[in-house]
Amino acid sequence: MRKALTLAAILVASTANIALAQGKLIAVSWKTFQEERWKHDEAAIKAVVEAAGDKYISTDAQNSAQKQAADIESLIAQKPDVILVVPFDSDAILPSIKAIQNAGIKSIAYDVQFEDPNSLYITYDNVGVGKLMAQTMLAKGKKSGNFAYVKGDKGDPNSAFLAMGFESVLKPEITAGKIKVVCDNNVDGWKPDNAQKVMEQCLTANNNKIDAVISENDGMASGVVAALAAQGLAGQVAVTGQDGDTAALNRVALGTQLVSVWKDSAVLGKRAGEAAVAMANGTPISKLKGVIKFADGKHHVSMPAILLTPDAITTANLEDPIKAGHVTKAEVCAGVAAGKVAACN
């Protein structure tokens, strides 16, 4: 009962606001706020939308497909111009997307794809993250030798996307016999302590003859580096990661991790906000900046997409996440000897 009342109050309040506001209405259906990152996304979208004189509303599906369908119905009732959706379930969401379009509202798949030819998909290029790891490894880390793959949870499709990316880059070197993959393991639940055990056994099996480790994220990289440190190898073996974790950026500064691929959610939010505002003002999707055709999804439906390139953070550009306010200089540079890393001076 109280829920219904609150909902009614929100409806009344927002309708009133629409009447008052001159601008457009942009809505977001989030799949969850349980993870910290979505707050950053929201702040970025909201900033762009409000700067354009438009209004921002949102719902949180709390990791439930049913709740998300109901959320979208209530959003449609408020007659927004564009709805951005972070689907909890990419397939179950499709009827809701249809309903959005039937109401004459434009839809955007934000960061997580649903396959609908009339919607815009905006995300970081996940296969690209894997590629970027391998490219950075070849350019700034090790070009040859014994490589170990520490992959994420076997049930997570992202782990496979990442592997697809780095394997495509490393393949020519492997065929040429320059790189030998000596360990290749999935880590249950992307857990750092499991990654540590995997790395320990890999080092034992190869008598420490490991030159590079492709770790699919920063959490697992922390376990890998702990295992390397116990063998006195931290800093000698090049290690990759992704997420731009504070601890990982600190390891990059300390030299124990080569690269952390960073997908700045503030940038993603900003680009999505801009696209939404443009679409609300009548710009067709195909006329937006950077739109390409994307058909690499599960069902290979071709849809317009904006794929952002992530940043490979190494010692060379450590100041980027600091400048972006993602981490502080003190956090990144903790324990770093003076004069060693430019970003810490």
């Binding site: 249950d188 639940g189 992307w190 857990k191 750092p192 302590d193 540590q196 959490g219 922390s222 376990g223 702990a226 440190a229 601890a247």
Partner: peptide, 13 residues
């Protein structure tokens, strides 16, 4: 101490 780090993923399951 062994991982030289703590996260909420440590020890789960």
């Amino acid at each position: 101490a062994r991982l030289d780090a703590a996260t909420n993923a440590l020890g789960q399951s």
